[in-house]
Amino acid sequence: MIKVLVVDDDFRVARVHADLAARVEGIEVVGMGHTAAQALELMAEHRPDLVLLDEHLPDEPGSQLMRRLDAAVIMVTADGDADAVRRAVAGGALAVVLKPFAPEALVSRLVAFVRFRRALEGAGSLDQAQVDHVLSVLHGGGATSLPAKGRSSVTAEAIRSALEASDDALTAADVAGTIGVSRATAQRYLSDLVQAGRVELSLRYGVTGRPEHRYAWRG
């Protein structure tokens, strides 16, 4: 589970944010703080992975506090001033969500963070394509599985889109023709996705008796 700490000076707002976060699969809300001092105490106690942080705290600005937090941060603030956004980004915020907001605005960013963390599970050293891929996942795009080294995240995403768009399972030849790559290339990427559990492989026997491999996106 991904541990989330909520920090907002208004305890009612903090509860709303905590309830939204708790609705996201894979997230556990481990605490709520209302000052910078409380945030630091809860950090030491729970060691959260992510902090939902308000800018206007009574004892220290959130954009200043975040530099002392050993966790990822999403700023949730009513301050839409350009300088405030700049400070948040400079301090390391993954995203800035402005109050008031529709629930989906926060939930979608939390879901993206969960997908980002899952994409990195078990990964060792990454190449540039893999780094690009996990960062695209963090910002709400891309498939959840990490492409193998030497694979293109663009090709992997094209294959995912082709499978998702089809009502029926596809062969490697079908996928290759759809996205404009060789059958061998499509087969390599499809094998990666099967191993990652993102694609379901089934066999269909034709008149020759040789099984035809067919692939369907598992969603």
Rank of each mutant, 00 (worst) to 15 (best):
L57K: 01
R68E: 13
D167Y: 13
L110W: 02
K99F: 05
T35R: 03
R68H: 13
G122Q: 04
V24W: 05
R87N: 13
L53M: 14
R188F: 06
Q195I: 14
A148V: 09
V131G: 04
A39G: 11
D19N: 15
P103H: 15
S125W: 14
R47D: 15
E200D: 10
A105F: 08
V6Q: 02
L193R: 13
A22L: 08
Q128T: 13
L203G: 13
G26D: 07
L170S: 06
V114P: 04
V137G: 00
Q38N: 11
G31M: 04
A158Q: 15
A196D: 07
V207Y: 11
I2W: 08
A196W: 05
R210N: 11
L57T: 00
L98H: 13
V199K: 00
D49H: 12
G206E: 11
T35I: 01
Q128G: 10
L193F: 15
L42Y: 05
D8Q: 01
D83T: 15
V131Q: 07
E41A: 11
H46T: 07
D54R: 01
R218K: 12
A44Q: 15
E45F: 07
R204P: 08
D81V: 10
G141W: 11
G177T: 03
Y205P: 09
A119W: 02
G124C: 05
D9F: 01
A39N: 07
A93M: 05
G141H: 15
G209H: 09
V30R: 03
H213L: 09
E28L: 12
L106V: 03
V73P: 00
A186K: 02
F116L: 02
A169I: 02
V7H: 01
K3L: 08
A93R: 02
A88Y: 02
L50G: 08
A172E: 01
A112R: 05
V181H: 07
M75P: 00
S145C: 07
A39C: 15
Q195G: 12
R87P: 09
D192L: 09
H34F: 12
Y189L: 00
R15G: 03
R12E: 08
V6S: 01
V6Y: 01
Q38L: 06
A165N: 13
K149P: 13
R12G: 09
G142Y: 00
H56Q: 15
G209K: 08
A172N: 03
Q128F: 14
W217V: 06
Y215Q: 02
R198C: 12
S161M: 15
H133F: 03
V51T: 07
V134Y: 04
E104M: 10
K99Q: 10
Q64F: 11
E41T: 10
H34K: 08
D168L: 12
V207K: 11
R47T: 12
A156L: 12
I159R: 06
F113I: 04
A21Q: 09
H213A: 09
V24E: 03
V114N: 01
V76W: 00
S161R: 14
S145F: 01
L50S: 06
A176I: 04
R183K: 14
R67E: 13
A95E: 14
G62K: 01
A95L: 10
V96L: 14
K99M: 05
F116H: 04
V207W: 11
V107T: 13
M43A: 06
P211G: 05
G62Y: 01
T77F: 00
A216N: 06
